[in-house]
C-alpha cells in the first residue's frame, strides 16, 4: 500500500524558559492509503500534537516526517493533499459556508467557477447545501463541523486528519458528524486519522493508537525499537492494524 505519512522518530517538546513539556515522545510509524486510525488518550496526552505533526502544521523537535504518497510544497503537504477538521471553529469567519468549502480549491489554483461547482456538490453530499450562504457565526457547532467536512470532501484529499471532530458536540450530533466524515472519506477513498477521547468514536475506526504522556502505543504489540523509539506501522489493506514485527 502507498505510504502517505512516514514518521521517523519524531518527537515534540515545548519549551517555556527552563520548563520543557514533552508532548510527543519519539515515534516511528506510517499511515497508508485507506487507513482508519483513531488516536485515543486522555486530554494532554499529545494526540493533537501528533496529528498536527502529521499535517505539517507543526515541526518536530526531533526526527522527521515525510509524505511519500502526497504532493508536497516545500516541507509541507501541497494544497488539497490533506484535509483538516479541527475540534473548534475552523471556518474563516468572513467567508460564507460555500466560500469556505471552496477555499482550499481556490488556494490550490482551481478556477473559481469550478471550485464553486465542486463546493456545491460537496455540500450536497454532506447535507449542508441549505446553509451554503450562512456565515460561520450563524452556524451551530454541528453545522460548522459538517461544513468543515464538506470542505474536505470538496478538496478530495488523500488524507483526512480530524482533531476531536466531535469533541464539542452532543452525542447524537457527534455521531451524525462522524457518519458524514467516514462516509465522505469512503467516497473519496481517503485515509482517515482522527483523535478522540471517546471510546465509542474510536470503535468506529479499524485501528487505534493509544497515547499517554506523549508516548504512543500502537496496536497489538507496541514494541520499543532498537533506537529506543516506539515503532509501528499501520497497514490499510483490509482495515487491519499490524505491528512493526508483523511487517518485519
Amino acid at each position: 500500500m502507498t505510504a502517505l505519512v512516514s514518521l521517523e522518530g519524531i518527537a515534540r517538546t515545548y519549551r517555556s524558559g527552563a520548563t520543557a513539556v514533552v508532548a510527543v515522545r519519539p515515534l516511528t510509524a506510517t499511515v497508508t492509503a485507506g487507513d482508519r486510525i483513531a488516536i485515543t488518550g486522555p486530554s494532554g496526552s499529545g494526540k493533537s500534537t501528533l496529528l498536527h505533526l502529521m499535517a505539517g502544521l507543526e515541526r518536530p523537535s526531533a526526527g522527521g516526517v515525510a509524505w511519500p504518497g502526497l504532493r508536497t510544497a516545500g516541507r509541507v503537504p501541497g494544497p488539497g493533499e490533506v484535509g483538516l477538521v479541527f475540534q473548534g471553529p475552523s471556518l474563516l469567519p468572513p467567508l460564507t459556508a460555500a466560500e469556505n468549502v471552496a477555499l482550499p480549491l481556490v488556494i490550490a489554483g482551481v478556477a473559481l467557477a469550478a471550485a464553486r461547482a465542486r463546493a456545491e456538490q460537496a455540500m450536497v453530499e454532506v447535507g449542508v447545501a441549505d446553509i451554503a450562504g450562512q456565515l460561520p457565526e450563524e452556524l451551530s457547532g454541528g453545522q460548522a463541523q459538517r461544513v468543515a467536512i464538506a470542505r474536505v470532501v470538496a478538496a478530495r484529499p488523500r488524507l483526512v486528519l480530524a482533531d476531536e471532530p466531535t469533541g464539542q458536540l452532543d452525542h447524537a450530533t457527534g455521531a451524525h458528524v462522524l457518519d458524514v466524515l467516514l462516509a465522505a472519506a469512503d467516497a473519496i477513498d481517503a485515509a482517515v486519522v482522527l483523535t478522540t477521547h471517546d471510546p465509542a468514536v474510536a470503535d468506529r475506526l479499524t485501528s487505534r493508537w493509544t497515547m499517554r504522556d506523549g508516548r504512543c502505543h500502537l496496536p497489538d504489540r507496541p514494541a520499543e525499537g532498537r533506537d529506543g523509539t516506539d515503532q509501528g506501522a499501520v497497514v490499510g489493506a483490509g482495515r487491519t492494524a499490524a505491528s512493526k514485527e508483523d511487517l518485519a
Binding site: A55, L57, A73, P77, G78, P79, G80, L84, F86, S90, L91, L92, P93, P94, L103, P104, I107, A108, R151
Partner: peptide, 18 residues
C-alpha cells in the same frame, strides 16, 4: 485581531504569497 483568519487560511494551504 484577525490573525485567526489568516492562520486558518494558512492551514488550508494558503502560501505566504497568497
Amino acid at each position: 485581531e484577525r490573525r485567526r483568519t489568516f492562520a486558518l487560511a494558512s492551514a488550508q494551504g494558503a502560501s505566504p504569497r497568497q
